[in-house]
Amino acid sequence: MKRVYVREEYCAGCGLCQVHCITAHSEYKGDIIKAYKKSFPRPLARVIVEEKRPLSFSLQCRHCEEAECVKACITGAMQKDPATGIVINDTARCIGCWTCVLVCPYGAVRRDETLHKVAVKCDMCAEAGGVPSCVENCPNGALEYREER
């Protein structure tokens, strides 16, 4: 399946992937200012940016074949779509036990405790379809959306 891969040698660490991720997961898609200023709660970025200069890279859910989070989920909220391979957390059923946080070897699941506790993670912008927003908006081509090589 296609996944998002980072080329850390070109990641500028700017964090725009996060900005666009937040926007894409807000109620105001395509409008960054409203996404930031009006959506409540403001979504958490599903992209993690790590930086230890000069190194920087962003990281999202790998949508593992053998997804630990899916297998460990105590509520059944975390599911891998058998058709697309995308691992999506059903936030309505998630109760924030953080078992997924405990088992994700990439540390790609975030905790959102703004309202009720819920685990959030990259959904490949599946709802919108196409290229994930982080990839689309990376200013330096550091994120690639491609089949594994």
């Binding site: 080329r7 040698e9 500028a12 000069p54 920087s56 330096n140 081509g141």
Partner: peptide, 18 residues
Amino acid sequence: WGIATQDPHLAKRLNPEL
């Protein structure tokens, strides 16, 4: 812009493919 620099943190801003 990652052009006139040898700071690896800055130089990586220029992706040579782009």
